[in-house]
């Protein structure tokens, strides 16, 4: 039937849109081209900047410790470990608290309170990183130093190696706590959206079975919203891995693998921010960019993952992060 269609003609050019439309299409496509070229350029430039270090240190850079700008010996393992520890530490805290907060907002709070509480928590998302860093550096770190860390050192230190550190204030513990606070609004907002999307009849079906409210919430509603919740957690993880300035201000700085929760160290992002203006040689700069390249690859992978997870939940577009 399709084969024998003598009457279809190839569209002639003039049958498509007029001149205005052609200009419009060319213009918009040019913009898209420029933007995609910028994106591609970002990758290229980072690879280019990291290239001297990549050539010199190879993949061993990822598994070696040692950061010596004088003798030009570099290994990013401490920063990779630092990035993972800080990100997952913060995710552990913020994930639990954030998810429970979202459940509380949607399932427990009366309707008139839901809006204001949500708004207040969203407000947290509008506070710039540097302000969290400021708070972490000047308020949280000294507070931890004088109270919690002293207590930990005295009481837990003798028994557990991970607590056997000196109370510096700034360090992993401060960085993790500050980052956790920063991640809260993102996790609360996105999980709340996922929970709100659970259809009414799913909820009512649970109650119709005679289940208690908590069993419905925990056994039916949360599992139903699972994809959205996981999506929000993965998005937050992406943010956590890449957070720069707040971590740079609170983690203290250090080039070796952490041994205790109170140690000082660096993440991939924060080492760049803190050391960039101190670089003394091209190879040092390149080693920092190599760290950037590792970070870029990690965050791209995590974000692509998040994109597909979130899209599966909410159709073609995902929701706002």
């Amino acid at each position: 039937m399709i084969a024998e269609a003598p009457l279809t003609r190839p569209r002639e050019k003039k049958a498509r849109g007029g001149r205005g439309d052609r200009i419009y299409h060319v213009l918009i496509k040019a913009i898209v081209g420029v933007v995609l070229a910028i994106f591609a350029g970002v990758f290229t430039v980072v690879v280019f900047g990291a290239w001297p270090a990549v050539k010199r240190f190879g993949p061993g850079f990822l598994i070696h410790t040692g950061w010596d700008p004088v003798h030009l010996v570099f290994g990013a393992l401490p920063f990779i470990v630092g990035t993972i520890l800080v990100a997952f530490g913060a995710m552990f805290l913020a994930g639990g608290i954030g998810l429970m907060t979202a459940v509380c907002i949607t399932e427990l709070l009366p309707r008139w309170l839901q809006g204001p509480v949500t708004y207040l928590i969203e407000l947290l998302a509008f506070i710039p990183s540097v302000v969290y860093g400021l708070f972490g550096l000047l308020v949280l770190a000294p507070f931890l130093q004088e109270t919690v860390e002293v207590w930990i050192m005295e009481h837990l230190g003798p028994h557990f190696e991970v607590f056997n550190g000196a109370p510096y204030g700034v360090g992993y513990m401060s960085a993790i706590l500050i980052l956790a606070i920063m991640l809260l609004p993102l996790i609360v907002t996105l999980s709340r959206e996922a929970l709100v999307l659970v259809p009414r009849d799913v909820r009512e079906g649970g109650y119709a079975l005679g289940l208690q409210k908590w069993d419905v919430v925990w056994g039916i509603i949360v599992p139903y919203a699972r994809n959205g919740i996981v999506g929000s957690l993965v998005l937050a993880l992406g943010r956590a891995l890449g957070e720069t300035i707040a971590v740079a201000m609170t983690i203290g700085g250090g080039y070796s693998l952490p041994k205790t929760v109170m140690d000082q160290g660096y993440t991939l992002a924060s080492v760049i921010a803190n050391e960039f203006n101190e670089v003394s040689s091209d190879m040092y700069l390149s080693a920092l960019i190599y760290c950037g390249l590792i970070l870029l690859v990690i965050t791209v992978v995590v974000n692509v993952l998040a994109y597909f997870l979130v899209r599966r939940l909410s159709g073609a577009h995902g929701f706002k992060a």
Binding site: I2, L7, T8, R9, R11, E12, K14, A15, G17
Partner: peptide, 17 residues
Amino acid sequence: EGEVLLDGESVFDREIS
């Protein structure tokens, strides 16, 4: 597939707007 003619001229040959 097929023909649509407006005053004997195919609409597919006309400028669309």
